[in-house]
Design a binder for these strands. Structure first.
Length: 417
RNA sequence: CGGGGCGUGGUGUAACGGCUAACAUGCAUGACUUGGGAUCAUGUGACUCCGGGUUCGAAUCCCGGCGCCCCGACCA
């Protein structure tokens, strides 16, 4: 894409109503727009990043047998009354509204009850199980205090997968697979090293649930990390009994602030009992379906990446999520030769299928370099009189600052990898 | 939901209760310039968040509302 056609613009200064690093950088670079507290729109660059993250998650969910759907944001009151969760005392973050005729509706806070109800139309025999169903859907939560930029919003998309199993063993086996898939997701998204499988409270059916916590000062949670075992315990469940269960020692633990980028937990039969999602087993015995729930918030992951990987000059995207792979800059020359060479290289990159943002704006080089650092695309390629004279292109790696001088074919091969 | 802070051109800031609300940046036009946000010129752009009050006079003081940020609580 030619940058001259991008409608967004960078800013030198962060808006005064944002303190968090993720919001400041994402707004300055033109990735997001704040509609109101805890509600952000995604702009062209931001949506590209968001979709990259979604794509990685989708691949991993498909790999473990997930089937993608899209449920609704409106939900009926009746969906939630069986588990008593329509009650504002039980769930205090509802946005509720109604139809013209007075029928009450809720804007989805989450979807386990809605999907459980839906699955009743399709599940009645052991033959139709297990099933793994997921979606990327907007959740609405009337948080009393939205904060930390895009890390804790009132409207946000979540990937939520729900498992429907026949037996506890079958559930446990999938749960382990999901755990591994999540580790793979965070590794691919570039935050694997800072992200810990964390033991957290399990609710009423299991001793623990599992969170994926990424260490950052911007986090809201306190976790206790055992660096050797690559495990952590959420402060909410830290006690001697838990440590003994997990075979870890207090002396090995280091307290860290972290943000919950994913969580998985067993639901047991809470929803299947309440909503009567049952199946007949091989012997014709009626049994409730055993369920699990698995969530990741792509926007929160995006914010977490910015928090953990940016530097003083701006954002540093991992390749897997960057809006473009290459940011190509032309430093204009008097005779127009640099511009002509840059146009040609852009065409070659396009032809090679390399996602390129081409800074063809009529600006001085300093401003383009500063913008490139801020926007944070992994590879910067400069075309100027200097590079033309050298007969090679200049490529700079955003993350490391490494600069390489490459012939065009070498450059394209390197970027294709 | 408790506590604290803050609302001034698009953005970031300034202005003792007193002159036409200032500066920077952005944007527009032109000149000059082209390897790290240059320089110059001329423009553009604000009912000082909203409503009330005090005062000869309010961006400034007082009351109410709304919005935003931070700390804490909450996060099924």
């Amino acid at each position: 894409m030619r940058q001259s056609q991008l409608f967004t613009r960078t800013r030198k200064e962060a808006p005064k109503d944002e303190v968090s690093k993720n919001a400041q950088l994402l707004i300055r670079a033109g990735y997001i727009y704040k509609e109101m507290a805890g509600v952000y729109a995604f702009l062209p660059l931001g949506l590209r990043v968001f979709n990259k993250i979604v794509g990685v998650i989708r691949e991993e969910m498909n790999d473990i047998g997930g089937q993608e759907v899209s449920l609704t944001a409106f939900q009926q009151k009746e969906t939630w009354t069986p588990t008593n969760q329509w009650d504002d005392k039980e769930v205090d973050v509802w946005f509720k509204t109604q139809l013209k005729n007075g029928t009450e509706l809720g804007l989805a806070v989450t979807h386990e009850a809605a999907l459980t109800k839906l699955m009743k139309d399709f599940v009645s025999s052991y033959r139709s199980l297990p099933q793994y169903v997921y979606q990327f859907q907007t959740k609405f939560r009337n948080e009393t205090r939205a904060k930390s930029g895009i890390m804790r919003c009132r409207e946000f998309v979540m990937k939520d997968l729900y498992s429907f199993s026949r037996t506890q063993d079958e559930h446990n086996a999938f749960y382990e697979k999901a755990k591994q898939a999540y580790e793979q997701v965070f590794k691919r998204l570039g935050i694997g090293n800072q992200t810990y499988l964390t033991f957290a409270s399990g609710g009423m059916f299991t001793k623990f649930s599992h969170e994926f916590q990424t260490v950052t000062d911007a986090g809201e949670d306190l976790i206790y990390v055992d660096e050797n075992k690559k495990l952590a315990v959420n402060k909410e469940v830290l006690n001697d009994e838990v440590l003994k269960d997990l075979g870890i020692h207090r002396a090995d633990l280091v307290e860290k602030k972290a943000v919950e980028v994913g969580n998985i937990f067993s639901l047991g039969t809470r929803f299947s009992d309440a909503l009567e999602l049952n199946f007949l087993d091989e012997k014709g015995v009626k049994k409730p379906v055993i369920m699990g729930s698995y969530g990741i918030g792509p926007a929160r992951v995006m914010g977490t990446i910015v928090e953990t990987l940016s530097d003083k000059d701006g954002i540093v995207w991992p390749e897997a999520v960057a809006p473009f792979k290459v940011h190509m800059i032309v430093v204009d020359s008097k005779d127009g030769s640099a511009r002509a060479a840059a146009d040609a290289l852009y065409a070659a990159l396009q032809k090679a299928g390399i996602e390129t943002l081409y800074d063809d704006r009529d600006l001085r080089p300093g401003e383009k370099f500063a913008d490139a650092d801020l926007i944070g695309i992994p590879y910067r390629v400069v075309v100027s009189e200097k590079t033309i004279a050298a007969g090679k292109h200049e490529m700079k790696v955003r993350a490391t600052g490494e600069v390489r001088s490459l012939a065009e074919t070498e450059l394209i091969d390197t970027l294709r990898e």
